[in-house]
C-alpha cells in the first residue's frame, strides 16, 4: 500500500474519532438540554413547596414536595444504613486482612458482581423479603431495597479510596503498637473526603432509581412521617405524571424531571470537586 493511502486512512479515522467523541460528549448536553427546555416553563414555586392538593392529578393545585421529601428520606436512610454496613466491610477487607488474601480478593469480586445486578432484581428481591417479613410497601421497604442497591457502590468506592492511602501509613500506626482497629481509625481520618464522595455517589444513585422503589416504597400524596407509611419518590412521580393524558399533569412531569436532574447535577459536580481536591492532597 502506498504511503499516501496509508496516510489517508489515518486521516479518515481521525475525523471519525473526533466525530464519535463529539457525539458521545454532546449526549449529556442533549439530555440535560431537552429536560431544561421542556421543564422550565412548568417549574413554579408551588412545584417544590407544596404536596399534591385535591384534584392534582386532573391538573389542579399542588406540587411534588411529597415526592422530593420521600426521595430524600429513602436515599438518605439508605445511605446512612449503607454506610453503617459498608464502612466496617471495607475496613475489614483492606485493613484487617492482609493485602492480597483470598477472602479479600473474592469479596471484592463479589461486590463487583453485585454492583452489576440491576435495580429491578434488587427491587424484586427486597419485595420478596418484605412479604416474608410482613412489611407492606412503605418508607422502610424503600430504604431496604435502596440499601441493598447502594452497598456495592459504597464498598467499591471506599475500596478505591482506601487503596490510595499508602501502605506505609498503616505500617506507621501499627509500628507504634496500635491495634488494627486503632489503625483503621487513623486511616478513616485520612480518607474523610473520599467518604463524602462515596456518600454523594450512593445518595445520587438512591435518589434517582425507580426500579428498586417501584414496589417497595409505594406511593402517597402525603409527606411521610412514620417509617411504615408509604412514600412517594421523585422518579416515580415523574413516571406516573408522564402517563397522564392531561397536559398540565404532563407538564408537571417535565418540571419534576428538571428538579431531579438539578439535584443529581449538584450532587455529581460536588462529588467530582471533592474527589479532585482529595487527589491533589495526596
Amino acid at each position: 500500500m502506498g504511503i499516501k493511502r496509508r496516510k489517508a486512512e489515518e486521516t479518515i479515522f481521525k475525523i471519525l474519532m473526533v466525530m464519535a467523541c463529539l457525539i458521545v460528549g454532546s449526549s449529556l448536553f442533549l439530555i440535560v438540554g431537552t429536560i431544561v427546555v421542556k421543564g422550565v416553563p412548568y417549574l413554579t414555586w408551588d412545584m417544590v413547596s407544596k404536596a399534591p392538593q385535591g384534584g392534582f392529578y386532573i391538573g389542579k393545585e399542588g406540587g411534588v414536595l411529597n415526592a422530593i421529601i420521600g426521595s430524600l428520606y429513602v436515599a438518605g436512610g439508605a445511605t446512612v444504613l449503607g454506610l453503617l454496613i459498608s464502612i466496617p466491610i471495607s475496613i475489614y477487607l483492606n485493613i484487617y486482612l492482609k493485602g492480597g488474601s483470598l477472602l479479600s480478593k473474592s469479596a471484592k469480586l463479589a461486590y463487583d458482581v453485585l454492583f452489576g445486578i440491576p435495580s429491578i432484581v434488587y427491587g424484586a428481591f427486597a419485595f420478596s423479603i418484605m412479604i416474608w417479613l410482613g412489611v407492606r410497601a412503605s418508607l422502610l421497604g424503600g430504604v431496604i431495597a435502596v440499601t441493598l442497591l447502594i452497598i456495592p457502590i459504597l464498598v467499591r468506592t471506599l475500596d478505591e479510596v482506601i487503596a490510595t492511602v499508602p501502605r506505609e501509613l498503616k505500617h506507621a500506626a501499627l509500628s507504634l503498637g496500635a491495634t488494627r482497629w486503632e489503625t483503621a481509625r487513623v486511616i478513616l481520618r485520612q480518607i474523610k473526603p473520599g467518604i463524602y464522595t462515596a456518600v454523594l455517589l450512593s445518595f445520587g444513585r438512591g435518589i434517582g432509581d425507580v426500579a428498586a422503589v417501584l414496589f417497595t416504597a409505594g406511593f402517597s400524596d402525603n409527606i411521610p412521617i412514620y417509617i411504615d407509611e408509604p412514600a412517594a419518590t421523585l422518579p416515580l412521580a415523574i413516571f406516573f405524571q408522564l402517563s397522564s393524558p392531561i397536559p398540565e399533569v404532563q407538564g408537571r412531569a417535565y418540571a419534576s424531571a428538571l428538579i431531579l436532574t438539578l439535584i443529581i447535577l449538584v450532587i455529581v459536580i460536588v462529588s467530582h470537586i471533592l474527589a479532585t481536591k482529595h487527589k491533589h492532597k495526596l
Binding site: D209, A253, I267, H272
Partner: peptide, 24 residues
C-alpha cells in the same frame, strides 16, 4: 473534560433518560 462528562452522564437517573427518549 470528557472523563468527568462521562461520570456525570453515568449519574443521570434512568427515568431522565426515559423522558429524554420520549421527547428526543
Amino acid at each position: 473534560v470528557m472523563l468527568p462528562l462521562m461520570n456525570i452522564l453515568a449519574g443521570i437517573p434512568p427515568v431522565i433518560y426515559g423522558v429524554w427518549g420520549i421527547f428526543f
